[in-house]
Simulated scan of single mutants.
Amino acid sequence: QVVNKAAYMVVGIDLEGQKDVLGIWIGENESAKFWLTVLNELKRRGVEDILITCVDNLKGFSEAIAACYPKSDIQKCVVHQIRNSLKYVSYKDYKAVTAALKPIYKASTEEAALEALDKFEEAWGSKYPLVVRSWRGNWDELATFFRYAPEMRRLMYTTNLIEGYHRQLRKVTKGKSIFPTDESLTKMLYLATMEVTKRWTMRVQNWGQILSQLLIYFPERIEQYIL
C-alpha cells in the first residue's frame, strides 16, 4: 500500500540575521492539530518567541500559531495567494488577471492596496468572484507586511527563502518518489539539508537596518536578548 505524505520544513532567521532550518516533519495531512504539534516541538527545543511568521496558505496553520505563539504577526505568502487565485482563472485571462492583481501587493500602503482590490473587483469580480472572495477573506494576514518598511517587506510577503531551500531538496528526491519508511525520507532530507545550510554563511541582506526597525516594533521582546 502506498500512502501519500508530504515533508514540511520550518526555516527561521535569528536576531543575528542568520537563517537556519529548524526542523523537518513528515505528515499525511494539514491540520491545526498537526501544526500545533510542530510548533510545540519548536517551543520545547528553545524557540521562545516568533516575531513574524510567514506561511503558505496551509489549512489550520494560523490557528496553531495563534494558540502557541499568540504575539506573532502572521503573514500569508502573496505568491501562493496569486497561484491559488489563478486556479479559478481561464488560461486566456492569466496575464490580464496577474497584471490586475499586481497593484494590490505592490501598493505603498494598505489603504492604496484596498483601493486596488476594489478596482480589481470592478474589473474582474463578476467573472471571477472566488478570486475576490479569497483575497478579501485572507486580507488580514495578506496585508500584515504593509505595517513594515520596504526592507522587511521583501523578507515577509513571500516564502522565497524556503522555496529556494525546497528547490535544493527536490534535486536529491526527484529520482525517488517512493520511500519505504518515513525515517528513510527524513534521513535523505536531513543529509541534503546539511549540504544546503553549509552555504548559508551570510547574514540576511540589510539586516542591520531591519534589526533597528524590529527594535522599534518589538522593543520589550528583543532588548532582553541583544542588550
Rank of each mutant, 00 (worst) to 15 (best):
N4F: 15
K5H: 12
A6V: 13
A7G: 02
Y8K: 05
V10N: 10
V11Y: 00
V11F: 13
I13T: 02
D14G: 04
L15W: 02
L15P: 04
L15A: 08
E16N: 06
G17Y: 07
Q18T: 14
Q18G: 01
K19W: 02
D20Y: 07
L22Q: 07
W25A: 13
I26M: 12
N29G: 09
N29P: 01
E30Q: 15
A32F: 05
T37R: 00
E41H: 06
K43H: 06
V47E: 04
V47R: 05
V47W: 04
E48D: 12
D49L: 08
I50V: 11
L51M: 08
L51Q: 03
L51P: 03
I52R: 02
I52S: 03
T53M: 11
T53K: 13
V55A: 14
D56F: 05
L58W: 01
L58R: 13
K59P: 05
G60E: 11
G60N: 09
A64E: 00
A67Y: 10
C68K: 09
C68L: 07
D73N: 06
C77R: 04
C77Y: 06
V78A: 10
H80E: 07
H80D: 13
Q81R: 01
R83T: 00
N84R: 08
Y88T: 00
V89Q: 08
Y91W: 11
Y94G: 06
A96C: 03
V97S: 07
A99W: 06
A100F: 03
A100T: 04
L101D: 07
Y105P: 01
K106P: 04
E110I: 10
E110Q: 03
A113F: 05
L114V: 08
L114W: 03
E115Y: 00
E115Q: 05
E115I: 14
E115F: 02
E115G: 12
A116P: 02
A116R: 03
D118L: 11
E121I: 03
A123H: 03
G125T: 05
G125I: 09
K127L: 09
Y128I: 08
S134G: 05
W135P: 01
G137E: 01
N138Y: 15
N138A: 15
W139S: 06
L142I: 05
L142C: 12
L142T: 10
F145W: 05
F145H: 04
Y148T: 02
Y148R: 03
A149K: 10
E151S: 12
L155M: 08
L155H: 02
L155C: 12
M156W: 08
T158V: 11
N160Q: 09
N160E: 05
L161G: 15
L161V: 11
I162Y: 10
I162C: 11
I162E: 07
G164A: 15
L169D: 02
K171Y: 05
V172N: 11
G175N: 04
G175K: 10
G175P: 03
S177E: 15
P180G: 14
P180H: 14
E183Q: 14
E183S: 13
T186G: 08
K187M: 14
M194R: 15
E195T: 09
V196I: 13
T197Y: 06
T197L: 11
K198S: 03
R199S: 10
V204L: 06
V204M: 09
N206L: 06
G208Y: 07
L211K: 02
Y217H: 15
E220H: 13
R221M: 07
I222G: 08
Q224N: 13
Q224V: 11
I226D: 08
I226E: 01
